[in-house]
Design a protein around this nucleic acid. Structure first.
Lengths: 344, 344
DNA sequence: GTCTCGTCGGTAAACGTTGACAATCTTGTA
DNA sequence: TACAAGATTGTCAACGTTTACCGACGAGAC
């Protein structure tokens, strides 16, 4: 009489079928030495016949590895998240690691909570996107518990953990210089969430471009958004109602830039004829918008791949990493249809 | 002399510190009965002092649960993926389950491969988005290995597994009827990837609307895209160059609809004055586009939440589910600025 | 024929936690 | 005072896999 409760087959079951001991089965399946080819074949056939899949929990327990990599981010634009994810996944695909997504809101004020979440998740390592990558308390917790982490585009303490960056300042300078070169002088700036380090770096870049051009930034035209379309729309409406009207808007990401274009149209203004708009990120929306948005390509996908690569190398490599802990990626200014010289 | 190799603390360590047995520690930390309040306090303090976090692999091993839920999808638009993910996550947040993302391309021709991937991932259950939710071979594999799954908006075999659907046909009918009611007669249709069941359902709905209105569909104006912007752009350009020109375009998702708007502008046509465009999905891009897109809200987030809810209920509940295995969600036609009556 | 060495296969223990069950302690009552 | 009943605490094994270590066997050297 067969047992009616069917359970997943184990190594012991294969051993019984193949007529060898469990240890031999383990060796055969893992392509370890000290197993004759004949036995290996027999074992593999038995495993296939039983539809055997190893119990990962048991493997994890003994290897002291969960083969789980976490990815944490704070609700930015969908395209950013997907790029991040796909970049990391394209590196993970080959190996046994799996990606666990852990979005978290209000990171800055809840660092402790996020830290606990990450530690409880049983991860081998974690990828930190902004703004989590810049939270000192969080990094302290991870250090203390020896949970390896890779930081994607951090702004501060660049010597902690594995770091993958883009020079936000240079990128910010490039896009601002583009507008100034076109002849714009009344340039409004919509900042992102000030808790994201990117916001600060990009602004530093804008400032440098203005300085080099010998033009003063009009602080009245600098307003704060939070990287979302909705808030961007609201502040852009307000900016465009001022007199004299700004001739260009420099938004710190594409979602807010697209919002600014929508706000301009709401006020009966044509983009780019009446007002130029530039974004940041080269997200999908920057290409699907009309006119297509001038923006800066942030190689998010590549950076995420790189971060995952560094992390896995650190996890798998017995030896300490020899190479520098930091890798830089280049930005790329994409001049498209949303920016032209100011109206005469 | 302390051991120099520091390892994560275990229950045994806490037991030593608190002066009780490991079993008692386990009971205290899990808020199980049969532990005095005094001991429980002492144990919890010791655990906190040691920065203890339970070893999930060991818990998984004994519970025969990994507490991992998989989410598999095939590179659709970013906004869809993020909505799906956020919906599932909002249900998972409360409990101990974690979400593993498993994107997979060319699902239809690689069902076996995807099945193996899912089985090897050590999941407790899996959420299947289109088109994976409609692959019979894949479902067979999952059934055979008793891996529970919830299907999000499947098209066929609605009695297999847990099912969360929207009536794609009714939704398709609603948006098509809207254009016909406005007076459009030359309506071009851009289909999505034919392997996605949604594509078929929506087309059925369009057809029903045309039938009810007593209007024949012009098969020459029905072209196939693949849900992406780029292909949508190409086929839309081609459609709009025909004479007589279609007065409206019915795209099976928002990305292709936005592409159609871009193509129209490329040809010097105004949307919606010269040509109306309607999409599908109420994705973020449909709101950030200009003009805002008439579309159908597919409650992706809610459906994903629901699918996760069903799956977890099935996993946690000892008893078989009493309620129907299928839940339906309603669509919602969102008439926005991209559709107006045809030019005179 | 014996000894050495290398290959193949087996046994026992370990990973960290919890379930089943036994032992002990406390308290109330006859 | 003794004893039952209930609460608390302890012991042991188990989950499925791999690592460490040991034994058997065959080939080749002397």
């Amino acid at each position: 009489m067969e047992n009616t409760i069917s359970k997943r087959p184990t190594i012991v079951d294969i051993a019984r079928v193949a007529g060898v001991t469990p240890k031999t089965v383990s060796r055969a399946l893992n392509d370890a030495p000290h197993v004759s080819e004949k036995v290996r074949q027999k074992v593999k056939e038995a495993a296939a016949a039983l539809d055997y899949h190893p119990n990962i929990a048991a493997q994890s327990l003994i290897a002291r590895r969960s083969y789980l990599i976490g990815l944490t981010y704070e609700r930015p634009s969908p395209s950013y998240v997907v790029e991040l994810q796909n970049g990391a996944l394209s590196r993970l695909e080959a190996g046994r690691y799996r990606l666990v997504v852990l979005p978290f809101s209000q990171v800055t004020s809840r660092q402790e909570e996020l830290g606990k979440l990450l530690l409880r998740a049983g991860l081998d390592g974690v990828l930190l996107a902004p703004p989590a990558c810049d939270q000192p308390l969080l990094l302290d917790m991870l250090d203390r518990q020896k949970l390896p982490y890779a930081r994607i585009t951090p702004h501060s303490e660049l010597d902690r953990g594995l770091v993958v960056t883009m020079d936000e300042v240079a990128a910010g300078e490039a896009v601002a210089a583009h507008l100034l070169t076109l002849g714009h002088r009344r340039v409004a700036i919509i900042l992102g969430d000030p808790s994201h380090a990117a916001s600060i770096g990009r602004m530093d870049g804008y400032r440098r471009a203005f300085e080099k051009a010998g033009i003063a930034i009009d602080q009245d035209l600098v307003v704060t958004g939070d990287f979302t379309f909705d808030v961007g729309y609201r502040v852009a409406l307000e900016l465009l109602r001022r007199t004299p009207r700004p001739t260009a808007i420099l938004a710190q990401n594409d979602d807010m830039a697209v919002a600014a274009m929508a706000a301009a149209r709401e006020l009966g203004l044509a983009v780019p004829q009446d007002v130029s708009v530039a974004g940041f990120d080269n997200s999908e929306v920057s290409r699907t918008a009309w006119p297509q948005l001038t923006t800066v390509n942030q190689p998010v996908r590549e950076m995420a791949w790189d971060a995952a690569d560094r992390l896995i190398a650190a996890l798998d490599g017995e030896s300490e990493p020899q190479e520098p802990r930091r890798r830089d990626h280049a930005h790329e200014l994409l001049v498209r249809a949303s920016t032209v010289p100011p109206p005469a």
